[in-house]
Design a protein around this nucleic acid. Structure first.
Lengths: 246, 246
DNA sequence: CGGGTGCATTGACCCAGATCAAGAATCGCG
DNA sequence: CGCGATTCTTGATCTGGGTCAATGCACCCG
């Protein structure tokens, strides 16, 4: 998605890029953003906003994971997006949340008050351009996910999720070890099931199967090691020439 | 999506809104757009661009239907978007197509050459804003579709598709009759299957079932009549308080 | 007007993944 | 350290929708 690495240790005041690496933001713009920002923390499992709620802020994820999901009134739910550090939450110009947003793990957001942020966006065209780019990226990710949901087998779905998380970890410059890539699973089996359109039992079984077949290794229940990424890539069923990523 | 009705009879030169109704475009902007536009027609089934191709234009659909789809190399395909009249094709700032675009029916596009269009976009902020809005709408539609793909039964999927097409027809001011809403199915059973993550046999069976149960009526194979939209809405499994629409 | 050719319907069978149910592992927390 | 609450794993069974196959139905074209 981006060649720029987000620095977890400091939340930049530039919502579009981390302060240290935002080449396009001028000093006065950064100060302006500083003036309207504040931080919020959430516990794992805590709701951030419900579908239909007014949101008076937009935010960028500093640490932790949040999910966007849609629920049917009979209890079936489908996760429609996963927000990892450096991802953006909220939609400029639209103050009603279209999905439930839930903190999947402990979470810190860097929030910007909506009104001044939108005013600033109007005055500063490159922010709008950047948001369009980010929205197009999200759209690509959503459509990639439609292929996963509509056409992949349970095993391919799990492999795809692992590949996406591993790539995401790598894009942050983390997780590479001498014997493969590794990352911490930020999701429970149930959350994975909600993301993949499966049941948690099927998720568990397919993870066990991939482990049995040597495609992945688990340390505990949450730490995943990918000894051979190409092998995993094959299991996803995707074209080999790099597709889209979350 | 929009309160503005697109006039099929004339393709406006404003890509964002039909000329007659684009309140924000100035005369000189419209003339500038006129200078870079041209029309293209495609036969049903004809490819428009393949995933990975360079696109030197963006376009708006004048008549007909186009699909965006992703293919797995073993032949499984998933449609990830459906472009109906007044929808926009292409992504400013990105000249490589991320999906296959195929004319589902006979199709006319109003195309704008990419370079001048992008230059114009930079100079004319409201066009960029409008594109951000449209992209957010597409994102909502994609995520709505993720719920359909991930969690709905075959019957609910078919009902959802019918509801979406009926609503779309209504939003163009068409299709209302004294005994319900009606519309022409722009998709073959196979295309519906690709859209819904089903097989064409299941699509056919579920359409028959909905017909048998009086939820829909067919005239021929393509003309659909919805005697009671609320009944159809219930069959979709969605919340009754109006959700998102395509 | 007869036989292609491409869509659509319907039937018979099967299997991937859901559902139901029982434990096992892990993590608090007093 | 123990015991309750989660979360995860595994097994047994069931079923919605996939697969394979036959047939029906239009419409075109020679």
């Amino acid at each position: 998605m981006s060649d720029v690495i987000f620095d977890h240790k400091e939340c930049g005041s530039c919502p579009i890029r981390h302060r240290a690496v935002c080449a396009r933001c001028e000093t006065d713009e950064l100060e302006e953003l500083d003036a309207i920002k504040y931080y919020r923390s959430y516990e794992a499992g805590q709701p951030i906003v419900w579908s239909g709620d007014r949101m008076d802020f937009v935010a960028s994820v500093v640490t932790g994971v949040a999910s966007l999901s849609q629920a049917m009134e009979d209890g079936r739910t489908q996760m429609v997006g996963l927000l990892l550090p450096s991802d953006f939450l909220g939609r400029p110009g639209r103050d009603v949340a279209p999905y439930d947003v839930i903190a999947v793990s402990n979470l810190t957001l860097c929030c910007f008050r909506r009104k001044p942020f939108e005013q600033m966006m109007i005055r500063t065209p490159h922010i709008g351009q950047r948001l369009l780019e980010m929205t197009l990226d999200e759209l690509d990710a959503a459509r990639e996910w439609m292929l996963i949901l509509g056409r992949k087998t349970a095993r391919e779905k799990i492999a795809s999720l692992m590949a996406i998380l591993a790539r995401r970890e790598a894009s942050l410059g983390l997780g590479s070890t001498e014997n493969g890539m590794s990352f911490e699973l930020p999701l429970t089996r149930e959350a994975m099931a909600d993301y993949l359109g499966l049941t948690l039992e099927t998720v568990s079984r397919q993870i066990s199967a991939l482990k049995r077949d040597g495609v992945i290794t688990l340390e505990g229940k949450r730490k995943v090691l990918i000894p051979d990424f190409d092998r995993l890539q094959i299991e996803t069923g995707d074209d080999t020439d790099g597709g889209l990523m979350v």
